[in-house]
Design a protein around this nucleic acid. Structure first.
Lengths: 143, 143
DNA sequence: ATTATTTTATTGATATGTCAATTTTTGATT
DNA sequence: AATCAAAAATTGACATATCAATAAAATAAT
């Protein structure tokens, strides 16, 4: 077989998974009870207050069904608060709780550092090219 | 927040997920009852007969526990056959069944075409650079 | 040979991804 | 207003990812 190492898509898969495991491990090691995905969802919510779950899903690059479940867990962890939106009873109003804000703030530095470590030895230009290529792949595979 | 679009790791995540969904959809549309991951595991097994599950996991960029479960499903689907290895009773001897070989052969063209579609408009040089960058990320995040 | 260590694989628990079907509510059509 | 279609979210079913704990067998150390 073509060596897997040479096939872009396996490397892509491996890269994101390696980074994910690394980040999650750092979070755990530092005693933070939150997953990378949960962090992302709160972050998006903080920057887009009042957003619907559909937009939240889109902005966080997540599936709809996943967002529903991630939010469930976040509410259970007391990082989010939800109540029915009286103006559109199909949706909920999601709010980041003080606990939620606190953990995001505490985690922020670690997140930046994880990214930095992961990007060691990679130039700005290289990162830009990476983004360009990734965007092409995304476009090619979308309906 | 830094716009997510500009953050490499979300694009990375999104790219591999978009490609995965695309590939899986094509498999489904063509009536193949197999997942991308299952395909990969069989493929690796065909090219490395007699391999242990640990090496299989490594070569397929999969987690150990995941391999156990993927193999379970493949045996259930009659694409793999397993029996205890008498020389080392901790391990099993895994064999691709005729059904397994058949589906791999039938799927091969589609897989190549999926990759081709996903790489449309991306130069060889770009792909090479992508690989180089991804390998750096992997190295940076490994222990 | 017995014990201790290591290796290989499995399993349980939890989180996420994906699709399809469904529910609830809203908005549009007639 | 009654009906119909669209939108938002949930749920069920299944596959995979991850970690931790465990089981079983092989190998090393004494």
């Amino acid at each position: 077989m073509e060596r897997l190492e040479t096939i872009n898509f396996y490397l892509l898969d491996k890269a994101i998974r390696t980074y994910r495991v690394y980040s999650q491990k750092k979070l755990r090691e530092n005693g933070f009870k939150i997953t990378v995905d949960q962090w992302l969802v709160i972050k998006v919510l903080m920057e887009n207050p009042g957003i619907s779950q559909l937009s939240l899903a889109e902005k966080a690059f997540k599936d709809n069904a996943s967002i529903t479940r991630i939010i469930e867990l976040l509410v259970k962890s007391k990082y989010l608060d939800r109540k029915v939106n009286p103006k559109d009873r199909r949706t909920s109003i999601l709010k980041v709780t003080p606990d939620g804000e606190e953990i995001i703030n505490k985690v922020q530095g670690l997140v930046l550092q994880n990214r930095k470590v992961a990007q060691t030895g990679i130039t700005i230009e290289e990162l830009e090219n990476l983004n360009i290529t990734l965007k092409k792949i995304i476009k090619n595979c979308q309906p």
